[in-house]
Write a protein that binds this DNA or RNA. Structure first.
Lengths: 343, 343
DNA sequence: TTGTAAGCGTTATCAA
DNA sequence: TTGATAACGCTTACAA
């Protein structure tokens, strides 16, 4: 029912193929015929059929976004990955398809790649050792990651610079005078499955603390308020000299605040808190507003797509050096960090 | 390079079409040939090409999710719409494509619908009067809404029951003894562009208050803490008898809490707050934890897809009564609502 | 129950 | 600079 290319061709009085060439610029077309063709297209309200085009050209201009949906649901940061990626894709004339892939059903991934529906994939929530990445590699499907495996090799990625982020958090606290800073991480299970951010933040903190010449006290912590509260109490019992905490756990940090309340410590007078890799959308909701190292989530989403498209649109014979980028978090000073108490 | 249907046919020693019929169940195939075909498919690792299938059958099994990205970004609730929709789509063997559509670029929508790429669309963030909805209607593309226009007619939708939600909020507060309850809504601009939830919540609150025989005091409010704070002070100045506030504005509610702090009022002893249509993911982060009417976001996303698929998979000759569903929010009692003070 | 063949709407090769 | 026409990989009448 919608006009086809042949209809345009007839109306412009040219061959079908000429319309195709005019449309794609794959071959020179004289200015006058091009004009006629364009007019015909306008008049008919012609839109090229994406399926037919994809079938014939073997390029669909569709990208897949692989995102697992963890038990707890996704947060603001993840939403920003998605919108950033979707925006970037659109700007480049691509579509973004959502592929909710649990790590378990690798079959769905095979299904997806085998369908010939997508030109490439963007992988979110990457683990240090990630089957999906292996599979995509085997499938020969171009892809990039938001995050990275332990050994990315020649795979392109955009990730947060956790080394820098933990360093910045410690530096901020040391400038304020703190000399004993703890680190509250994500859950033990995130750590044990090798979730990238969890592992790298721990390593980064360790190194940064050691470089700064301060003791490093760290703990994983369940992703909920109760766990955060318990963790704080334990941390304080075992390390009473602690004057500040770097927290990479949005759900637990509230528990820490509650624990402080319980012992009538005020933030930041008696204790300082810096939340890392958490959106200000969230930390603004807390009182006092948390000092935060905010991840460039939207930017990471955009970058992930750009990196992928670089691969896709590079001529196949050229060498393709992977693009691997680490972006820093931005320090947003709130009201949860101040000089240590004179105890 | 990947195996095609003809390869399967040859290996199973049947005609190409028989493979197709076996695959789709469009026509009876004897058990034995079907077995041979299945085996051949397995052995070859055959995956049907989605593009070719779509081109020939005029059905792609791809759904579009239309979501505008407002200035402030999307929140947890919106993310849940997305994951719910994506999950439901996958369960039914469909793909979900993200179409970040600003209201302005109606052209992109035309582009999308004209491409023959999608079977139907799911529209998010619907306004009372929404061009996108009009356009989809004209384009003849099946679609459903999460939310609804002022006059949905025969368009299928799943939306929050704002009437019920505001009623529940007021009922909760009245049970506690409150007799003068105010309502803090979204921004004036959301109201003026006719954003569905904003308008309906206001209407719902008005009716519920009137039915309950209490005064209704309401105000729109900018989506940020400063505006929330100012709004509270103004509200209190003009209506000093207020003992509680129903708030449908996640970003402003923190400002209200700050304002209460300023005048040394404690929550809930001196003043109660009920946050409506906001995720517990967010209200759990606040101290005291807010009493909330939590929207069934994931469910709405799922339902939106199901409703759409009902339309799509119904035989075209049958009459198709639209499915229009309103879902209630769930009351989660936190620590921000209690009996009114004995002033 | 199975086979044959005509599309589906493009791209891209080969000629002119 | 342009035109025919063979793929692309499948669905679906129409025949047998």
């Amino acid at each position: 029912m919608p006009p086809r290319m042949i209809d345009v061709a007839k109306r412009a009085d040219v061959a079908l193929s000429t319309v195709s060439y005019a449309l794609n610029g794959t071959r020179p077309v004289s200015a006058s015929t091009r004009r006629r063709i364009m007019r015909a297209m306008e008049e008919l309200g012609y839109r090229p059929n994406a399926l037919a085009r994809g079938l014939a050209s073997k390029r669909t201009r569709i990208l897949a976004l692989l995102f697992p949906t963890p038990e707890r649901g996704l947060g603001v940061t993840e939403m920003e990955f998605v919108t950033g990626a979707a925006d970037a894709a659109r700007e480049h004339g691509y579509h973004l398809m959502l592929a909710p892939s649990e790590l378990r059903d690798i079959h769905e991934l095979e299904h997806l790649t085998g369908q010939g529906l997508i030109d490439g994939a963007l992988v979110m929530e990457v683990r240090l050792d990630d089957e999906r990445v292996d599979l995509l590699g085997q499938a020969g499907l171009p892809f990039s990651m938001i995050g990275r495996t332990s050994d990315p090799g020649t795979i392109s990625y955009a990730d947060i610079d956790f080394e820098q982020t933990t360093r910045d958090a410690i530096a901020h606290l040391m400038e304020l005078g703190h000399r004993c800073v703890g680190f509250l991480n994500h859950s033990p299970s995130a750590l044990s499955v090798g979730y990238g951010p969890t592992v790298r933040a721990a390593e980064g903190f360790r190194r940064a603390a050691s470089d700064a010449g301060i003791a490093h006290i760290e703990r994983p912590c369940g992703d909920n308020a109760a766990a955060g509260k318990a963790a704080f109490h334990e941390l304080r019992a075992s390390s009473p000299e602690l004057t500040a905490l770097v927290v990479m756990n949005e759900r637990a940090v509230i528990g820490v605040m509650n624990a402080l309340d319980e012992i009538s410590w005020r933030v930041p007078d008696d204790f300082s808190i810096v939340s890392i890799v958490s959106s200000t959308r969230v930390t603004e909701m807390m009182r006092p507003q948390l000092t935060t190292l905010e991840p460039p989530s939207t930017e990471l989403g955009r970058l992930g797509v750009q990196i992928l498209l670089d691969q896709l649109e590079r001529p196949h014979d050229e060498p393709l050096p992977p693009t691997q980028k680490l972006l820093p978090c931005r320090l947003v000073v709130g009201a949860s960090s101040g000089p240590p108490p004179a105890r």
